[in-house]
Design a protein around this nucleic acid. Structure first.
Length: 550
RNA sequence: CGGGGCGUAGCUCAGCCUGGUUAGAGCGCUGCUUUUGGGGAGCAGAGGUCGCGAGUUCGAAUCUCGCCGCCCCGACCA
């Protein structure tokens, strides 16, 4: 391809509002352009990369027996009403000309389960169906270029099995395929246990790619035996230094004390020997969540424990339920449900007295209050690994893939059933598996770039070789490009009427793995200069050897 | 949805506080000259509803109000 005829608008400067490296480089390199918030066009170069990711995903999906099909983006609202997902705020709702409600699919569980009703016998199971299709989500906050967008292509796959055992097998197959996909894309990822969020179902695994920009936090053990998403990570906090035990709670005046640091300072105790009360509302009821003073509540965990949506209680709700201001709340005397973190099971803690400006020393579970215990704290730096006690490491990361065990969450409401050997009707057991190729692209750029630009892995590069024809040598450059193409390489020939420096800068920015320079000096030697983008190494190669290049 | 910021040429921005010729710069773009192995130099040009709408004023890019859009943080989130 001749750069002089390619729609490849590279920019010297990054867009002013870009933060993420992948956002800056993909825009500067002429791979993508923004149309509106979270809505992006893939320019010719960007689409080539996207389609290379798609190609890899397709090969690996076919290798585990996946069957590619294609489902529509627009779906009737009824399907979503049946599964209860019609009320998801991200769901983009539209009407046809008759006013009949439809939605733009944010994934395709409903649609594929609708089709799965044609699977009627155990003899037809298992099945894996997948497609590459546009997903539309009315995201509250798109951000970071391709990292979170409102419309994107997703490879979504769905497995159909007769039972949990079959699902486990399909799930493992996908996990294996995903490992191979990311490996081939040159991405470093960790597979971790994760929250299921809006998808429903029992178990899920996230594939997280560590990067400077990202919306997830990957928690790993320094010894490599533990990895989890922060939302469900179970770090072990250090033990507190408790003061002397008290036979009964003792009230202390703490006027104007609003933070744990101030409280611990005033009383001269370890912040870990205090407790923090976080009132939340679930289904209109105030529930008290209790964590250690030096911990933060992990709302995702609490939400899972309580089995539904939660929100922080308002100041008015707090005063009505506790008779005290936020800052002096505690479990003693509270009539409602209390969920306490495991770290508070043993020992005596300082807690709010439910009287403004007062706290209680020596509060002990069992004697002074009753609570349901669960892991609801957010892991933090300094925690120990739950497996081996080693130090935990925290890294921001990008979620590039997510696989879910759905069970019968969709098949039951949508009536996807089969008959087993004994003639009994059973719901189909399902799994769903997603990868966003655009986000994979962004993650690759986040992990593989330098000051000059992108360093694409060979498998994803828009072209294998970038031939830079120095000014006046366009035809000689074209001859080199033809020779390379004859040997199976894809070639971008920079035959633009530009200075050498500009061409080199663009080549570095675009990031093809190999750059070949055709210049007067090289031609005098009957050779070209070949430079490896990743290592920066450059060597002179005789023209006759071009066919043997990678 | 809460907080903060921004909106002037294709891009990056200045001008606004303190209203007043014909609205500017750099980069990019067009033509010519020169130059040619890491974003050269010169000359000549094209390119603008100053986000939109009201208002104040003799006069608004500039002040006021409303709306829209975009970015960042948070909330939320396959």
């Amino acid at each position: 391809m001749r750069a002089s005829q390619l729609f490849l608008p590279t920019l010297r400067e990054p867009p002013a509002d870009a933060e993420a490296v992948s956002h800056k480089l993909l825009v500067r390199g002429g791979f993508i352009r923004q149309v509106s918030a979270g809505l992006w066009t893939f320019l010719p170069l960007g689409w080539r990369v996207h389609e290379r990711v798609v190609g890899i995903v397709r090969e690996e999906m076919n290798a585990i027996g996946g069957q590619e099909l294609f489902m529509p983006v627009v779906t009737p609202a009824e399907l979503w009403q049946k599964t209860g997902r019609y009320r998801i705020p991200e769901l983009w709702k539209i009407e046809d000309r008759n006013g009949r409600p439809h939605v733009l699919a944010l994934t395709h569980e409903e649609t594929v389960t609708f089709h799965a009703r044609e699977l009627q016998s155990y003899k037809q199971l298992p099945q894996i169906l997948y497609h590459f299709q546009t997903k539309v989500r009315d995201e509250p906050r798109p951000r970071g270029g391709l990292l979170r967008v409102r419309e994107f292509v997703m490879k979504d796959a769905y497995s159909f099995d007769r039972d949990e055992e079959g699902l486990e097998l399909s799930f493992r197959k996908h996990a294996g395929a995903y490992e191979r996909i990311f490996e081939r894309c040159g991405l470093e990822t960790s597979a971790v246990q994760a929250e299921s969020g809006m998808m429903g179902g029992s178990e899920s695994i996230d594939f997280l790619a560590p990067a400077r920009s990202g919306e997830n936090t990957l928690v790993t053990c320094e010894r490599g035996d533990y990895a989890a998403d922060l939302e469900i990570a179970r770090g072990v906090p250090r033990p507190p230094e408790f003061p002397d035990r008290l036979d009964a709670p003792e009230q202390v005046d703490t006027p104007g004390i609003e933070t744990i640091e101030a409280l611990a300072g005033l009383l001269g105790i370890d912040a870990a020997a205090t407790s923090k009360a976080m009132p939340v509302v679930r289904d209109g009821r105030v529930v008290l969540a209790l964590v250690r003073g030096d911990d933060r509540l992990e709302e995702a965990k609490l939400s899972a424990v309580l089995g539904g949506e939660i929100r922080p209680a308002t100041d008015d709700e707090i005063r009505e339920a506790f008779g005290a201001d936020p800052g002096s709340l505690g479990p003693v005397g509270f009539e409602g449900e209390i969920v306490a973190d495991e770290a508070l099971r043993e020992g005596q803690f300082v807690a709010g007295a439910n009287t403004t400006g007062r706290h209680l020393r020596g509060v002990e579970h069992g004697r002074d209050f009753q609570a349901r215990f669960a892991d609801i704290r957010q892991s933090q730096e300094g925690d120990a690994c739950p497996r081996c006690g080693g130090a935990l490491r925290f890294q921001t990361a990008i979620e590039v893939g997510h696989i879910f065990k759905l069970g019968t969450y969709y098949s039951t409401p949508l009536d996807a059933r089969y008959l087993d050997e004994t003639g009994r009707e059973q719901p189909i057991v399902m799994g769903s598996y997603g990868i966003g190729p655009g986000r994979v692209m962004a993650a690759v750029v986040e992990q593989r770039h330098d000051e000059q630009g992108i360093v694409w892995p060979r498998a994803l590069a828009p072209y294998d070789v970038h031939v830079v024809a120095l000014p006046g040598l366009e035809e000689q450059g074209a001859a080199v490009a033809e020779a390379l193409e004859a040997h199976g390489s894809s070639v971008l020939l920079d035959d633009r009427d530009q200075r050498a420096g500009e061409k080199f800068a663009d080549a570095d920015l675009i990031g093809c793995p190999t750059r070949i320079t055709v210049g007067k000096k090289t031609l005098d030697d009957g050779a070209v200069d070949l430079r490896d983008r990743e290592s920066g190494e450059e060597r002179r190669v005789p023209m006759a050897e071009l066919g043997a290049l990678p």
